[in-house]
Nucleic acid binder design. Structure first.
Lengths: 356, 356
DNA sequence: CGGCACATTTAAAACGTTATAAGTTACCTC
DNA sequence: GAGGTAACTTATAACGTTTTAAATGTGCCG
């Protein structure tokens, strides 16, 4: 059983163990590198993290060997020792299912996390609308180093919880807490303002906007932008109260259809999403109304879907992959201990003034 | 510095350490439970895993205390010791961005993984179409206990690699390897067959089907189903070669539009996705052709989007959340060491024969 | 009552990493 | 050449869990 290669066998155990470790096929550890180079495990660890106290020659050698044998630090061991998980948790909301909102964001996040030790783990929310329980669990049990979530409310309990615990996070969407916190948000005020102005510029005299549920912060932003444009132009307007952007799409279509059949129907639509724009088109067409003739739409575009199918829908772009990438970048900075300055990003809509 | 509470200080260290451990606020470990109950750490560990050698009384007591103090095993420590990661990795393909394909699947997976120690981590693929490098990395470095991916090819190199390494995985989609492997697939043959039959039953005499890229297995299934229905009915048909379902949607629309303006245009469309159905409608309407009048569509429905917007599009449903849930269930069984029997699920389309 | 099986509990080691503190040289100064 | 100080390197312990092997006690048999 004992290795027959070794002739002197008494105090030789360390050396014998060495050869063994190098020859054994198991995945390489610090120990493997230590045995190959002749340095101690500690030195190897230090060298790999480029500690200044380790001589440059040693560092080079260790890095070289590490690369050669394809060494990769064991995440579990690192996590156990340091307490850092190297995990970013994304709270997935069922509402994000549609049109790949979640997927786009995650692709962006993943891009930002590339070439870092961080992994992206998905924590879905089945229960209620605010995943505060899930967050509490993550914070209390140290399941992640940072959190990403969206659809914020002005006094979002999730944000409150995280601020209280000093836990790193970045939201997609703003809040109204006095304590600032990192976020990446789309300038929905400008979007709604600009969309509505374009409708008016095209001669539309009764714009409508379908808003997200009122409790969410960006609903207020959209409303504000819409109202500003409407008041500046002095036109009439309409805001449905029965439906919102989270409604099933057939409800939206039916509402629009019903409304189109009544007097004083809106003749311009600022749509916060591509699907609601499609629903609007279909609802209007029930009454023979044609896009670009009797009415216009300016919609927010977050995928390649809408604009390409219906070229007559004017769109303003929101780049969710870029959003995710920025959120990732900021979260990494925040985890690294950066301060909360320059960690609030408001992405401006790509405004291309219409040729009219 | 030393705890002043303890009067006898010589061989008392263990006891002192105990009180310390209980009183300290840090997150509870096995040690905490051991100190409270008076059992050894080993016993506690055993009791929590319900080892039969531990007396029932002890097990009860330990579980009770664990619940009281909210003990949760440290994932890193478990992983380090056992080698199991408790991680399921999902390979995210950029093509899954549209219409929440990926998100739906992940919601289903998460549902299956609920109340298990498994976490869902997202591994996106930026580079090429086959994430074989990502997989090799995961397998070689033990980054996960199981893998989930989709869009399989008949001799998918990813499947080959995983089979060779005996690594647990479940695919969304079948292959043609002789070695069976776990999969969950939608019966795309039946879908295409049934969709085409419905078109013909409605009196359409020249059905068209837009297929996914030929290299993917389910493309062949769709083709086969389509051809079977077409041949049974003895009608003409058309299969575009210039475009596929992965094409940008405006290309699809333009193709349909162009085709609609030529002689012998198709009058029925079997659409493998909702977006292509919308593109078809738009393309056809360029030439004044109306859905339900000059032509019909039967589409695969994977979200709440299409059918609800365009009620005149007939649909056959594919439940991606259910798919994900089944994949999760099967993967867990596979990881637990189950054999490859009963691990191949073919989900039948919900066929509601049209009233016509 | 020695011994043996059984039931239950425990001590010790290990997984791979990092942090702390302690070595080991070589070189310089007076 | 004693003493000190850089410049590197290293031994040891620890993170929290599971595993292996050993220990403890209890009852039964001859």
């Amino acid at each position: 059983m004992c290795s027959p290669r070794v002739s002197i066998s008494l105090p030789d155990t360390p050396k014998s163990a060495r050869s063994e470790s190098v020859l054994k096929g198991g995945k390489p550890t610090l120990r493997t590198i230590a045995d190959i180079t002749g340095f101690a495990v500690t030195t190897v660890s230090r060298a790999l993290s480029n500690a200044p106290q380790i001589s440059l020659d040693t560092r080079k050698r260790v890095h070289q060997v590490a690369a050669e044998i394809g060494y990769l630090p064991d995440r579990a061991a690192q996590r156990l020792k340091t307490g850092r998980t190297n995990v970013i948790s994304v709270l997935l909301d069922p509402h994000e299912e549609i049109l790949g909102y979640g997927t786009s964001l995650m692709l962006g996040l993943a891009k930002a996390l590339k070439n870092t030790p961080y992994h992206l783990i998905v924590t879905p929310n089945f229960i209620n609308d605010s995943n505060v329980d899930a967050i509490r669990h993550i914070v209390r049990n140290g399941m992640a180093d940072g959190l990403i979530f969206s659809r914020t409310e002005p006094f979002d309990p999730r944000v409150r919880l995280l601020l209280e615990n000093g836990f790193p996070f970045v939201t997609h969407g703003r809040t109204e807490f006095t304590t600032p916190h990192p976020y990446v948000d789309y300038d929905n005020f400008s979007f709604a303002y600009e969309a509505t102005r374009r409708l008016i510029a095209r001669g539309r005299r009764k714009p409508m906007i379908i808003l997200p549920p009122k409790r969410m912060t960006f609903s207020q932003h959209l409303l504000h932008g819409f109202m500003t444009a409407v008041r500046e132009a002095g036109v009439t307007y309409e805001i449905p109260t029965e439906i919102d952007l989270d409604c099933p799409v057939d409800q939206i279509r039916d509402y629009i259809s019903r409304r189109a059949g009544q007097p004083d129907a809106p003749d311009g639509f600022a749509c916060g999403g591509e699907v609601s724009a499609l629903a609007t088109i279909t609802g209007m067409s029930d009454h023979g109304l044609t896009l670009g003739v009797e009415y216009d739409i300016v919609a927010k575009q977050t995928s390649k879907l809408l604009v390409n199918i219906q070229p007559r829908v004017e769109t303003i772009y929101e780049d969710l992959t870029d959003t995710g990438e920025q959120m990732g970048r900021i979260l990494l900075a925040r985890i690294a201990g950066g301060e909360t300055t320059d960690m609030q990003v408001l992405l401006k809509p790509q405004i291309n003034f219409p040729a009219v």
